[in-house]
Design a protein around this nucleic acid. Sequence first.
DNA 1: TTGTATGCGTTATCAT
DNA 2: ATGATAACGCATACAA
Lengths: 324, 324
Amino acid sequence: METVGRIAGVSQVTVSRALNDPKKVSAATLKRIQDAIELTGYVPNMVAGALASRRSQLIAALVPSITNVIYSDLMQNFIDVIRGSGYHVLMAETGFSQDEEQAVLSTMLSRRPDGILLTGIHHSPGCKRMLLGAGIPVVEVWDMTENPLDVCIGFSHIKAGEEVAKYAVSCGYEHALIISAGDERALRRKNSFAAQFDQLTGNAPTEVLYETGATIERGRNGLTTGIELGFKNGIVMCSSDLLAHGVLIEAQSRGLRVPEDIAAIGFGNQNFAPFTLPALSTVEVNRTHLGKQAAEALVARINNQPLSKNSIDIGFEIIARAST
Amino acid sequence: METVGRIAGVSQVTVSRALNDPKKVSAATLKRIQDAIELTGYVPNMVAGALASRRSQLIAALVPSITNVIYSDLMQNFIDVIRGSGYHVLMAETGFSQDEEQAVLSTMLSRRPDGILLTGIHHSPGCKRMLLGAGIPVVEVWDMTENPLDVCIGFSHIKAGEEVAKYAVSCGYEHALIISAGDERALRRKNSFAAQFDQLTGNAPTEVLYETGATIERGRNGLTTGIELGFKNGIVMCSSDLLAHGVLIEAQSRGLRVPEDIAAIGFGNQNFAPFTLPALSTVEVNRTHLGKQAAEALVARINNQPLSKNSIDIGFEIIARAST
DNA sequence: TTGTATGCGTTATCAT
DNA sequence: ATGATAACGCATACAA
């Protein structure tokens, strides 16, 4: 800035102004400064800027997995909006582990982010303490609580499980097989589905659980295991569309008719869901909307603008297609 | 640090040493400093550290799409290794556009990253100029050139297309349908496949192109369009496993036998490929290896360690499964 | 509209 | 082994 200023015949401060608040600089000097910037190839140093202004223009975003479309889709929309407000995103993976989340958060806070996006509402005590100490806005997404750390935007996994159970029963299914990934939120959906389905039909669902993530492979294996465990017909409730897709494939491989012999319902409404054979019934959560709204809420909080509510339930929708 | 030092009975400088180079501090004072840090809840400020040391411990990573598993998988492994070396990753999406890449790079350079990961080898002149000006290590991945900006790790898309064509012909297919996404690398594979297939069989492939990304939906529609264009039997060469999966589904929907009536081969060897019906033939690129190696190369370059070669071809492998 | 002085929280250099 | 001092490149308060 010093150099640019010298060439433009102004002080370093005026260059700073020209960059951050051009209205405060006369048109003539602004032009000279821009020419000087062009000439020198000056690149602003946000590190120094952040130190001086105490605003890093950085958002830390912690997601369980970046390869899972559910979350990367959410992040894509989040980043899109947040970039528009001049922020960069420091993204990290927590692998569904609170310890990992705490470890990652700890190093991220050294970057002095202006705001934080967390996935889920369950965090370690150490996490909460650090967040409190940092004193910056926090948005928790993809779950719902009345007592967020700061702001929460998402939906109730318990309700989702229940509604799927009610839907399944309304379709006339009297038996159910659950194939679920092992993360805490998937298990909460599973449990509320099982409880509700049992209550309505008197039949407790058969369960096949996988410790780690959902894949088509596990959907196929899950159906196989379920059948070995005695599941004959009814609905297969999957914690993810990928598992459900695997179920459809395995059913076809076994010559089972869908939905006559077995039905399947997934979760997530991934973009392939309408195009499987048969088309996959699922639960839709508007990830585009969620990502954008989370970004807007975070920016609002950073700017001390008031939010109407600290907990925003964006809900979900059961999409009935041919697989049920 | 000032506060921590006062409590520990040392100067601010000694606290800095205790954190960055503990060996230089006596065991006794180190202990007192650690206690003081614990007591105060001190969190280091990497913004200030970066300004003073001129090392941001930040890596900028530009990928075409974060929702595409091909790239997010690559990034996952990259980040994993790079984190182990004490770096944070600033990731951004470029959407397969050189203009977008330049715009993103321009704002990223303000963060003074210590290194940069780029996807692909084709960049705008402005991009190259900025990179040159920044004077930091650059690793280009997912493609191959003898003249990288700095370091290049990947494979040849032209070779990949050619090898797929040779493989297809070796299987006995005499006609081909190409379904491809519109990004530059996919088109390069498509073109070399088409040229090679034509040369070997005398039959130019039918082509269906989509401007944007690959989805199962487009795979289904692509086969439909291809059939309308006159494709009857032979092999369907897809620029992505997702497209190929869509082809399998559409074939099944039409009662076409795979691979007897039509065969299909994808690209990427995504984790579902072995579990489709029939299992999908595809081209595998070891993304885990690529991500890790890119991270290691970048760290080595940052530390001025020599690399044996500036262009590393990790190759690819045609995985023959039941769909061909 | 522009400039001067000061400080942001570290690391690096040099001295002790 | 430890400390004093000077950058690092910018933004802010205040003055002109």
